[in-house]
């Protein structure tokens, strides 16, 4: 389940009013979330949740659900 906070950060960064983000949603399915923009989303998530990811942790992410899990892990949820 994607938290409203994470959803808001992603949608704001992509300039999207709304998009149905599910655990299985992968980056290319979301308008504007391309390989070049990916880094901006990761930076926005790190800033918003005040966390720091290791490169290895980011590179193994497969979908938005994995990103949510990583955020939860880092924020101690």
């Amino acid at each position: 389940m994607i938290s409203p906070e994470l959803k808001k950060v992603i949608l704001t960064e992509l300039n999207l009013d709304d998009f149905n983000l599910q655990d299985e949603t992968m980056a290319p399915e979301v308008p504007g979330w391309d390989s070049l923009n990916h880094v901006n989303i990761i930076l926005a998530v790190e800033k918003s949740f005040n966390v720091k990811f290791k490169s290895y942790e980011v590179l193994r992410l497969k979908n938005v659900g994995d990103l949510q899990k990583l955020v939860d892990l880092k924020t101690g949820k």
């Binding site: 390989s35 880094v39 590179l59």
Partner: peptide
């Protein structure tokens, strides 16, 4: 590309 990009992400 992704490993270099993520490692140097602070350079935007």
């Amino acid at each position: 590309f992704k490993p270099i990009q993520i490692t140097s992400r602070n350079l935007r």
